[in-house]
């Protein structure tokens, strides 16, 4: 069983897939809803305090916006803990999304530059791509299982 960081971290589908293969998904416990009644798309369930952006200084310097640093205080430790990762690029919002593009760039960079197996996929645009997409994730998770 491996700890697998997923991007977008809010993707319940991806989180569920990882769990089904017996791995531990490292993700945000946030669901993207069809109707948005919160300040952001991926509003955190817990009240974040001004301390979080300060903790985020470990991942991004002070000239980086506070929202990026606040997010990194949550996702940075997950990336450090991860033994594998799946990145889905340009996903549909309903699949899972994260509100800040700058954080997304930093998260993907940190994941890609870490020494762990990474599956980097584009979100499918049609049924055929969809099948290949699911198959690629299955194969990656299976390989992870076998390698352990």
């Amino acid at each position: 069983m491996a700890k697998v960081f997923i991007y977008p971290a809010t993707s319940l589908i991806l989180s569920d897939l990882v769990a089904r293969f017996g791995h531990t998904p490292l993700s945000a416990a946030i669901q993207i809803r069809e109707r948005i009644q919160t300040p952001g798309l991926d509003s955190p369930p817990l009240q974040i305090t001004p301390e979080e952006p300060k903790k985020g200084l470990k991942y991004a310097a002070v000239e980086v916006p506070s929202g990026v640093r606040g997010r990194m205080s949550l996702y940075g430790p997950m990336i450090e803990e991860a033994e594998a990762a799946i990145i889905i690029n340009d996903a549909d919002y309903a699949f899972g999304c994260m509100g800040c593009a700058r954080t997304n760039e930093l998260i993907k960079f940190l994941v890609r530059s870490s020494d762990i197996p990474v599956l980097d996929l584009n979100y499918p645009k049609n049924e055929e791509e969809g099948e290949e997409f699911v198959a690629a994730i299955h194969a990656f998770l299976k390989r992870l299982e076998e390698s352990r």
Binding site: P39, G40, S43, P44, Q47, I48, T49, P50, E51, E52, P53, P65, S66, G67, V68, R69, G70, R71, G99, C100
Partner: peptide, 10 residues
């Protein structure tokens, strides 16, 4: 807005 929650200022 963008970012007030993760900045801890909401």
């Amino acid at each position: 807005s963008c970012g007030p929650e993760y900045s801890g200022v909401q």
